[in-house]
Every structure is written in C-alpha cells, then in structure tokens.
Amino acid sequence: MNPQTIREGYNFAYLDEQTKRMIRRALLKAVAIPGYQVPFGGREMPMPYGWGTGGMQVTAAVIGQTDCLKVIDQGADDTTNAVSIRAFFRDLTGVKTTERTEEATLIQTRHRIPEKPLQAGQVLVYQVPIPEPLRFIEPSEVETRKMHALEDYGVMHIKLYEDIAQFGHIATAYAYPVLVNGRYVMDPSPIPKFDNPKMDNSPALQLFGAGREKRIYAIPPYTDVKSLDFEDHPFEVQKWEQCCAICGSAESFLDEVIMDDQGTHEFICSDTDYCRERMENLEVTV
C-alpha cells in the first residue's frame, strides 16, 4: 500500500488506467452473461503467453490498494510460476500478499480451486489457456461462436459418448466442460474435474482471463454450474485410495510424488495452504 514500494516508472498494477477500464467493462459484460466469452483487447504482458497473462490482466484490472492477494499454481503457493506472479504484483502494487486462503480478497489461480470453501466477497481469478470448450471438436472460431449462439451443443456429448464407448468411462479428467446458468457451455480452465463441484453456487465471484485468445468470462456468485454427463454415467470426481503423506487428508486433491527410480510414489496435498493448516491444527490438538 505504500506507494514507494511500487517499481519506479510503472502504474499501479502495471497496466494503464484506460486499459484497466476496458478490461473492467469486459468483466461487467461477462458477469451479466454468465459463461459467455467476451472478447477484449488483451495487452502484451511481461510474461509469455500461456503463463497466465489473461489472469494477470484480470487481476491487474480489479486489484485495489486494500486487497490481499494470494497466487497459486497447481494449488500451491510455492510453485515457481506462482512465486513469479506474486512477486510481480507485490513489486507493482505494493499490496499485501498471503498464502492463507481465508485471508485473501483476491486469489489468482492456475489449475486449482482452493480446498477451503470460498466466501462471499472473495474473487477467484483463473488463468485460462483455451477458453473455448468446443475448440477440440471444432477448431474454427466462426463455427464455435455460432454453435454457442444457437445452443448447438450436441457435439459435446459426442465426445463423452465416445469416451464411454472406448474406455467405459468419461475420460475427461481436467478442463471438464460445464453448463453455466442453464445456457452456456463453458471451459472451467484446466482444473481437475475434482474441483468442478466447487464452482456450483459458489458465494465467491469467479473471473476467467485468457490472454493469448483475448477472452474474458465469468461466473457470478450463486450461479448454477453443472458438469456435463449422462444419466446412467453421472459426473464423478476423482478419489484416491491413499491419504496425503504429510497431513493425512483423505478429502483433498493429491499430487503424486516419485520417490525413487523404481517409480515408488507417495501422494501429497496439491493445496499447500490447506495441508499446512491441517498440520498446524494437528499439532495444536497433540
């Protein structure tokens, strides 16, 4: 919050105010039409495309001096890209940063939703590589926009049908498509499908930024978000037979860690803040 802490020669949060206003207009439209992809005049950012430039632009557009920012990548605060983005915003806004989910007013994420349920007033900003859920069925943008306009979504179920026919299961494990507010099919960004249920009727505002593809979309608080499925093959989330090797959680999303060349592996929580807090609580009870 101390203006002296902002890197010299740069505006608060890097982008100029006109650009931020333009992004906020796109965000307002996105909130008004849940799940609809709003084109916006994405800017070059000092990180490569695909590394979170969309999420960063959204964060830059909404962050204020009183915000408290948390940045995660793969659920963890200590992954290199999260460290890099957090340092960037600390450098260019001077706002407070945190690793604690409940403390953050603004959370930028890549590939995860925190395990701890989000609260009203929190904003979750997703980094999105490919915003178009129909892209891998229909590469042409002209066609996919038309399909959205006409709610021509039969092809989405073709993909799910083929998965079941070939593998006996719906074989999409991440970036699992959802229907937002009963209208738009949306790509939730490459979060594991484990996190999909957290999007449904969340009290937090969820914003999605795709920098390279220049699209913004949103899920306003308390909006229906349904994962596509079949009646006789309902949507299910991943489950592990193992618990977290550190905190023992049986409920969280687990990362596999390889211990030796024989491929012996252990599982640990992907959400480092969640894992740490559980350990602290365990220590207190002991």
Binding site: G154, V155, Y161, E231, H233
Partner: peptide, 17 residues
Amino acid sequence: GANIGERLMATGQRHYG
C-alpha cells in the same frame, strides 16, 4: 454409434444406454 446418437444428444437425450 456416436454418429447415429448425435441428433438424439443434440435434442436432449442424456441416457447412454
């Protein structure tokens, strides 16, 4: 199978079996 099922899925059928 998916070719035949496409129209049904497009018109809202959601039962794989």
